[in-house]
Design a binder for these strands. Structure first.
Lengths: 353, 353
DNA sequence: TCGGTAGTGTACATCGATGCAAGGATCGAT
DNA sequence: ATCGATCCTTGCATCGATGTACACTACCGA
């Protein structure tokens, strides 16, 4: 039915191998032959069967982008758009897998128990599995981790410096003269490494500024969604002494917090300033527009994909950690002038010992 | 390296063919053999090589979800999440392709000039190609179209009734007593079928209510993004007689419009009521929360995927049109009581003549 | 004249699974 | 004892491409 390499070979009067050589741009094919074959290919409308090619080459031609949340979470959809593009540039196919943070699903995907070694490599944003579990998985394909560092695990890793970023955000609030600065999004769970780092940055900044660390101002949330933010903010407003600023661990929490504030008639930023994290597009169109930590998502995508393909091409060097640049995007929800605090330069950080 | 069917066969002392029979749950395998093979499979950790299987079966095991906009557009990311799940349920892999509405890219994907018949089927949300062009493509794989109907083309089709939905939205504004109702999102372009239908519903509702159709209140936008909405709203506010309500052709436009209104100190809904279209999560957390037409996205995804798989399973019946249910979600941006107007029941509409 | 090598093209095996068709085994019926 | 039918298992070919190894032609320098 479909045109195969044999059909082309017959039509051009050469062997299938020669057709293959032309298709793959093997150097030693005479100009004449090459032209003849190319004409046959065009005439017949031949397209290589990628399944066959991949079987022969021992690859699947696909990499998975494993996400801990459904695609409708803006941070991940924005990131995914970049990753898809980067992968497509390399004539590979990227498949998005949604784990919903379920450890079982993450395990299954990575250890390829799921669809049967369907992927040549993984870009993995873990949630359900903690560092040790991930490191202990016997994964055969290259994996690049996104997000929190798996300490000295066998994987490459791309992440923002969460402590610095949190310091940047909270420092901004301090500089604006805020004194009761709350935090929304702490996670006392096993997998909440991101949250822990951000809380650390928050705490250190307060202490450096001579502000007391008040437990009641740190609200834990099970997830990082809008409704969690709304609920957390409600709890903060109910305090005897409510905060005059909030640092939300992501923009969705901030969206929810803002909603609660505005519904309660609290003025933002006059009464309460709000800072988010992620810089999703949604935040720029809020009223007031959201001040937020803006990680370079394009950089995350391109560093991760680039590193993954290095591994696919056989690079067997030590695992590498990349630190992704970020900046504070100051907008109306804090309104201060334009504080500058930026992350590191856009390049690799260091190989690990 | 990887465990193959031969390894299992040797280990279990049977032929590869028998292993295959067990894996594929062929009926006539003795309980004893089946058990033995299964044990070997577990012991060795065998996983079928899907590439090989697909080659043999003449399939790729993949379907493409072809989107006209990047994934970070909320409507599409929400829809994609559903589609991915539906496809995964069927042990197939869904791949998201972003065309950015480029006709060339759409053409290439569908006519499989791109990656070489990589997909067994397509769920295609067209933008760059118009009805005729799509219909004229010589696509071999089954295609289910999302969005505007390709009149009597050879494809199955899932869409909302845009005219009714627009009527529902505008009718709601009329019922609230609004008299100068604007529309944002008209598209005089060749591919703007969605927009045209919505404008039609808008216009018919006005006329039915005895309100004049005023060209100046209908603002065209090149795209359906937030900034287009913001800009369009600014233009409307600059009119000598600004509107007292706006019907936006999607929620992103409404987000932008709302932003402009709030920045200008216009009260919503008191001075201007706003209705959107799509019911993205973002709208529910706006202040004021966005009234919007809520299409059943889960239904879109499941109808489209179900129909696609019918085709993959060999159903060669006439092309079918599905009409997707919708409802008006009344929220703060119009604030009226709870108008009810719903779309059709959730089932197939009709086969075409 | 002969060996060497660079340039072209081909034959055959192979990647890992499944379709096909036929070979045995078992059992009941005649 | 023989025949069929049913149940179970297998050998071989095949899906469409590419890796390997080798054959053949020119042309080079010795």
């Amino acid at each position: 039915m479909a045109v195969t390499i044999y059909d082309v070979a017959r039509h051009a009067g050469v062997s299938p191998r020669t057709v293959s050589n032309v298709v793959n741009e093997y150097a030693f094919v005479s100009a004449t032959t090459r032209e003849r074959v190319k004409r046959s290919i065009d005439t017949l409308g031949y397209l290589p069967n990628l399944t066959a090619r991949n079987l022969r080459r021992g690859r699947t031609g696909m990499v998975a982008l494993v996400l801990p949340e459904p695609l409708h979470i803006p941070y991940f959809s924005e990131l995914s758009a970049f990753v898809l593009d980067e992968v497509a540039k390399r004539s590979y196919t990227a498949v998005i897998e949604q784990t919903d943070g379920e450890p079982e699903r993450e395990r299954a995907l990575l250890s390829a128990n799921d669809r049967g070694r369907l992927f040549d490599g993984f870009i993995f944003s873990p949630l359900g599995l903690n560092s040790k579990e991930i490191a202990s998985l016997a994964v055969k394909a290259p994996v690049v981790l996104l997000g929190e560092r798996v300490s000295s695990g066998p994987f490459d890793h791309v992440a923002i410096d969460n402590v610095s970023a949190a310091k940047c955000a909270v420092g901004h609030l301090v500089a604006l003269g805020r004194r009761r600065i709350a935090a929304i999004g702490h996670q006392p769970y096993e997998t909440g490494e991101t949250a822990r780092l951000r809380t650390q940055g928050y705490r250190e900044t307060l202490e450096a500024a001579g502000l007391a660390y008040d437990k009641r101002l740190v609200v834990s949330t099970p997830l990082f969604h809008r409704d969690n933010g709304a609920e957390a903010m409600a709890r903060l407003l109910a305090l005897a002494k409510p905060p005059d600023a909030v640092f939300c661990y992501n923009d969705l929490l901030a969206v929810g917090a803002l909603r609660t504030l505005l519904r309660a008639g609290v003025r933002v930023p006059e009464d309460v300033a709000v800072v988010g994290f992620d810089d999703i597009e949604e935040g720029r169109y809020l009223t007031p527009a959201l001040t937020t930590i803006s990680p370079d998502k394009q950089a995350i995508a391109s560093l991760a994909v680039k590193q993954l393909f290095k591994r696919l091409d056989g690079d067997a060097g030590r695992p590498v950690d990349f630190e992704v640049p970020f900046r504070l995007a100051v907008r109306e929800s804090t309104q201060g002038g334009s504080e500058a605090c930026e992350g590191p330069p856009p390049r690799p950080k260091a190989g690990r010992p």
